[in-house]
């Protein structure tokens, strides 16, 4: 018992000591609380659900931040792989540190943003891939993943020779579900009788599993494969390369991952969407609303064909371009095709 007591005593001392250091340390900063925007330097931060180097979802946010840094001279910061239990704390920390715009990259940050926002009226909270908003300072910014999947499906259905196309998704979450659903609707828009096979790997980490699942799809006759599983998806793309079929990238332009395999990518250009939104904020035109940016707004588009430019039939390219043109002009509402 005495041992325990002395143990406790020492611990209290140590913690006190450390806390003491912490206090002297932070006292300097505390005065600047909630005033960060005063020095004229725009500060933008993002909370990411995964690692920044995933070549997918989180990388798009990273690129967005980089673009904002470049364009507006903003000071940027991010926290990656934020666990659910830390959402609130992380939002609050950035707000206290004087960040003007805080982005929660994913629907899952919605609840927390709305909860924290009222305490920091000067700070704008942006949540992606959802449709929430809350006066005066919470808006949602959605790059339309359904439309992204739709144009990917259009490409796949146009190029397939086996009449079977497939898609590999990571975790079953809205951006992925939407893009896989859009893929199916888009493919069927071109050819109602097409065979669309979709699988989920259940995570974003196990690239080997994503590869084997892609192989299973290819063995089922899939000859055009759409991949939307972030870093795990690189495995699926490799499967396509090994088996000599074409793949369609997702989120960003993924051509560089496998130039001979990735015919194009369905890009949801968060960077561009973010740029539009930040410009709005700087112009004082910010509204607490749902910013839904899709093909028509230029935030969702098809990446270049690169090496495939000359290999694809002109009529195929024209047919794809026509669908996108129709979406831009409003003649075609992809969402209306989804029952």
């Amino acid at each position: 018992m005495k041992k325990l007591f002395s143990t406790l005593l020492v611990f209290v001392l140590v913690v006190g000591l450390l806390a003491g250091c912490g206090n002297t340390d932070s006292s300097g900063d505390v005065t600047g609380e909630q005033k960060g925007s005063g020095d004229g330097n725009l500060k933008v931060a993002a909370l990411l659900p995964g690692p920044v180097n995933d070549q997918g979802w989180n990388a798009t946010a990273y690129n967005g931040l980089k673009l904002v840094e470049e364009k507006f001279g903003a000071e940027i910061a991010y926290t990656e792989s934020v666990p659910v239990s830390d959402y609130e704390e992380t939002f609050r920390n950035y707000a206290v540190a004087g960040y003007d715009i805080i982005i929660g990259h994913g629907f899952e940050f919605g609840d927390t943003a709305m909860k924290v926002a009222p305490e920091f009226p000067e700070t704008k909270f942006i949540v992606t891939s959802t449709n929430i908003s809350q006066e005066p300072n919470v808006a949602s910014l959605n790059t339309d993943n359904f439309e992204q999947g739709f144009i990917q499906g259009v490409v796949a259905a146009t190029l397939t020779e086996t009449n079977t196309v497939g898609a590999v998704g990571g975790l079953e979450i809205p951006p992925i579900i939407d893009s896989l659903r859009g893929f199916e609707v888009g493919a069927k828009y071109i050819n109602p009788d097409i065979n669309v096979l979709t699988v989920f790997t259940g995570d974003f980490e196990d690239a080997a599993k994503a590869k084997e699942m892609a192989v299973a799809l290819i063995e089922k006759g899939v000859d055009i494969l759409m991949v939307d599983a972030d870093q795990a998806g690189i495995g699926s793309i490799e499967a396509a390369a090994d088996k000599g079929i074409l793949a369609i990238g997702a989120n960003g332009d993924q051509n560089a991952l496998a130039p001979d395999t990735i015919v194009t990518s369905g890009v949801d250009d968060l960077a561009m969407a973010l740029e539009i939104l930040v410009q709005d904020i700087l112009d004082g035109k910010f509204e607490a609303k749902y910013y839904d940016l899709g093909v028509a707004e230029g935030a969702v588009y098809l990446a270049p064909y690169y090496g495939f430019e000359d290999k694809l039939a002109q009529e195929d390219k024209d047919a794809i371009a026509q669908v996108i043109e129709d979406m831009k002009s409003g003649k075609l509402d992809a969402h209306s095709l989804d029952k």
Binding site: A19, C21, G22, D25, S26
Partner: peptide
């Protein structure tokens, strides 16, 4: 240290 013990909120977290 600051993030874990630097304020009441930090200690709370």
């Amino acid at each position: 240290i600051k993030g874990s013990l630097g304020s009441v909120n930090a200690i709370g977290e």
